[in-house]
Amino acid sequence: MYGQDQAAFILHSRPYRENQHLVELLTQQNGKVSALAYVSHTTKSSKKSLLQPFLPVNVVLSGNSSLQKLVRVEALGKSYSLEKERLYSAFYLNELLVRLLPEDQECPLLFSLYQESLIALIKEEPVELILRAFEVQLLEELGQGVDFSMLEAMSAEHIYYVPDSGFQLENETNKHMPKYAWLDMHAIACGQLSSITVRQSYKKLMRQIINHLLGGKPLNSRKLFS
């Protein structure tokens, strides 16, 4: 329900007209929401500092149309101070959410995972695993989760993943697609991610699915890692 206060994160905000900002938020109860926020340019206003990404905030939204109004915003705690690759990774999470998650789809699990991922990112835990866990949950919310149960019935050294239909053995239509080692996929299904080759295959798999969902348009935050 709108009109109540709820925890949220700003994903992105851009100036709109003289004294407004168009903000995209990930909220605890309503999922991703676009809202309009009034921001004054006077030095007394601290609202601008609250409209920053990676700061846990409490917001009150109002309105019935698709574009909400951000009535109130308060900081809930300290901003997650991320640096270097970890900051870029957090940008990556935001870009994924902004580009892929549909608006007004309730996703409390994804919200808490987003918060946990940010906490994990400041704690020096391996970045790759945090990102993979988030991607898996996001795909789950989008109805594009990977079904690993098909693996057992297949016996081949290499298999293919076809978005929307799942793992397949080699055939005429999937020849040009990236192929994966069966053992790597099996390890992912069992959650054994300690080996580097498994992690690389996992990354390749996620990348393939996400690129498919994005319709071929590249993710800009990937350019920051170089």
Binding site: L11, H12, R14, F91, Y92, N94, E95, V98, R99, L219, N220, S221, K223, L224, S226
Partner: peptide
């Protein structure tokens, strides 16, 4: 400034 969501990259 760098802002991947707005499509502004290092280039």
């Amino acid at each position: 400034h760098l802002s991947p969501i707005d499509g502004i990259g290092p280039d």
